[in-house]
Design a protein around this nucleic acid. Sequence first.
DNA 1: AAAGAGTATGTGTTCGAACACATTTTTATC
DNA 2: GATAAAAATGTGTTCGAACACATACTCTTT
Lengths: 345, 345
Amino acid sequence: MNKKHTIKDIAKLAGVSTGTVDRVLHNRGRVSEEVKTKVNAILKEIDFQPNIIARSLKSNKIINIAVLLPDPKLDAFWSPCLKGIKKIQKEYKSFNVILKTYYFDPLDNQSFLNSSDLVISEKPDAVLFTPFFSKESKQILHQLNELNIVYGTFNNPIFSNAISNFTGPDLYKSGRVAARLMDLITKDGKIIILHIDENYENATYMQKKELGFRDYFNMKDESKNKILAYNLKHTELEKSIGSIFSEHSDICGLFITTSKAHQVINVISDDILKHLSIIGYDLLEDNIKLLKSNKLQFLINQNPEKMVYNGLLQLVEFFLIKKDIPQTNYIPIEIINSENFEYYV
Amino acid sequence: MNKKHTIKDIAKLAGVSTGTVDRVLHNRGRVSEEVKTKVNAILKEIDFQPNIIARSLKSNKIINIAVLLPDPKLDAFWSPCLKGIKKIQKEYKSFNVILKTYYFDPLDNQSFLNSSDLVISEKPDAVLFTPFFSKESKQILHQLNELNIVYGTFNNPIFSNAISNFTGPDLYKSGRVAARLMDLITKDGKIIILHIDENYENATYMQKKELGFRDYFNMKDESKNKILAYNLKHTELEKSIGSIFSEHSDICGLFITTSKAHQVINVISDDILKHLSIIGYDLLEDNIKLLKSNKLQFLINQNPEKMVYNGLLQLVEFFLIKKDIPQTNYIPIEIINSENFEYYV
DNA sequence: AAAGAGTATGTGTTCGAACACATTTTTATC
DNA sequence: GATAAAAATGTGTTCGAACACATACTCTTT
């Protein structure tokens, strides 16, 4: 009953030739309304799924997809992305899918534009990119739309009313997950939220994490904790952290909204650390070391590999099986502690 | 440069026909040593990778895979497995992969044997099954080996020296993950490990979780907690739990090693619950309710869907691309709290 | 040297969908 | 109603690998 149907079967059922079925399937050429309706009815009835194998064997179309992301050499957070790219490449090689990777300097918005120009000049069929700098990203989106290039974005959302596609974490939820963890592992005292980043746009979406974090605590009846937030530059970390701790004596928790927890912890003395609960982001080697030595209690994994993998999968399936590309595709917010990190690296 | 080569190219290069190339590739029929060497040299030189698309289009071999697991209607833990099965089915339908699911009663080892007999009588190419009852499972393994049926096991390991394949959690690690969580959310007091299950074999591997859990605490310098373990039957839960709590006054944490946390929590009064930290397993509806209402702090997700998906993937890839089947394939130990569960259900 | 067996190699069809091309049917125009 | 143009539909080839079948070549054996 789960028999595979072919266009031949459908042709027979509809009393037409395979060519006509093909025309109906692809809205190619002309078919009389009457026949069209009949074939479509049959297609629907038996839920016809064309054999992708045969399809991609025949069509020698090559699907070129470009991936644009910050250079992993400049920020280690991005290096797991390469695994996701390789995985897709391997799985879809026989389907004539070709991926090409382009980097930019995450501290330099001109470099972002240059790389995107290069991407666009090569006229790929689709582009997956990190909308790292929001103003420039909107510019790129505009170009891609003009040229009818399919695209997806990943890692951070971009606030644009242009119809977009995004694969990544729900930042608000991410903050709530951290808050729940923090709530469970701290007693009374102040909790400090630290945003460490000099990129303004980046800071914008860090705010979402903060909002989620605060909301969790606000929604609780008892407010055992007072929550304060700071924006710090990583170049002045030691000084800033020092002054925060001298100003507040009863800090019980730190929530670091970026992958830079290791930089923060490095400038805090062990004496103080002993009484602190710290939650950070991302499985960088330096962060994992701290997890192992119990200086850091939890990491939240944004899973860059999965982001890229899922993002690319959507694009690939759009071409291969004409699957719609969803507006947003949230990936799981993964809680990591000292005992389960190895499954995620 | 990364040009795709076909057997036709190779035939031309070697000055033979495609039929001969085919014979060399598959060691089928007879080919003179001379030609064989020559063709092999060319195959190696250009690193020939046959087009799996074309291969599976042509080969009308149907790959029949049977999946044997407890009836989800009798134990809800198993129902996510069906999603994993459907996913593989959909992805590999065009590759002529056909899956068939068989159930057994998890409380009845005869039913397990009956179902496995049925599976074997249908002579599938491969079988993925839960070795739920260990003695019977060894018997099944033996039969499968005799009949040269490829197989994989999932969910729980089976302790047999027969070469096997297992997809599932590292139970020891799972215990450690729980222990780390428990350590962070409890202060001084007793921690109770509860095994709830009437199946002896099942209990055997629950021991592994207990060992991991205990080891974590043993390896710490300070031993703030005393750990006790009990085996309970779910039919006598109320009585047993009652007597445990009347015997020990300073219980601060419960670690329930099965998916039955909801049953335990239901027989504990809210007054007592308020001072308890509880960690359980698996995202059953009843458990999630408790997570939401904060009566349960953490759940560890064994991700039945992923177990089945990964297990089946290994079998499918064995047939499709002759990929070796690994001995063990541990899946991530996922930490779930009230804020991130929705990504996993 | 012819017949036959065994070995080595070549050819042709197939899988299902895509698409170019061929053919038939309908419609418009005089 | 003949003819051309346009519309509708049918047929045949192709993608790359698998495999059945056909053919060619080699070596015995009489």
